[in-house]
Design a protein around this nucleic acid. Structure first.
Lengths: 110, 110
DNA sequence: GACGTAATTGGCATATTAGCCAAATAGCCA
DNA sequence: TGGCTATTTGGCTAATATGCCAATTACGTC
């Protein structure tokens, strides 16, 4: 892997890594509906608010969400809606896997 | 997060996590061109073959690639080309970030 | 069967991540 | 200013991921 290509791959991997956590995927889906303050997300997720805040920081640093302070709460919103398109593709991966597993089980005579 | 939704998010996160590594992104891009044996990929990447093999196992378990043993080598190919579409979206994230950073530096008078 | 090559697996050391608590920061209102 | 709420940050521990080496497995050839 050449120098330049490596740097580019690293940058991409960072964005993907930011998305690659169930709680952060949840946040992304919720923000796709509408903006939310940290307190609302925290209540939905059921974790410590500091944990949620750190997840949001990861998403922000990756460039996936924007924050907006209003009064003493901070509202987050999705910055890059196109990532939602990707979920359809991920679904197809999951479906393929499920089918394959079913076929395997059938072949095994169960 | 309800039980069912959580399971679904976990499954999605697993697929994303499998993609979220520079070496594995490299492999995905190479396999998008054409199938490759482990030895070829290893040479391109320049890591230990066991390391590459493990990366491929991660991609396989996530359902992203398929393997095909021929003779004493194993050829891998991309199973889900739609993930390539996503890279365009990731690029836009990276571009936005770059622009913002440039604006920030300019505002700071540099 | 013995040898060589390709690939996977096990094991280990190191690095990174996640989540909680406690402490600090920031804004609102009395 | 003091008290209250919302959020972020620091610090710690536990869990997970990475990459190498060594050992094993699988295949082809002699």
């Amino acid at each position: 892997m050449f120098q330049q290509r490596k740097a580019h791959l690293d940058a991409r991997a960072l964005v993907l890594k930011a998305m690659a956590h169930p709680t952060r995927l949840f946040i992304i889906e919720e923000l796709a509906k509408e903006e939310r303050c940290v307190c609302d997300l925290t209540e939905q997720i059921g974790a410590d608010i500091s944990t949620v805040s750190k997840h949001l920081a990861v998403l922000r640093q990756a460039g996936l969400v924007l924050d907006d302070k209003r009064g003493n709460q901070v509202f987050y919103r999705l910055r890059v809606p196109c990532i939602l398109n990707f979920f359809g593709c991920v679904e197809s991966v999951l479906e393929n896997r499920a089918k394959e597993q079913a076929a395997y089980l059938q072949a095994a005579g169960r």
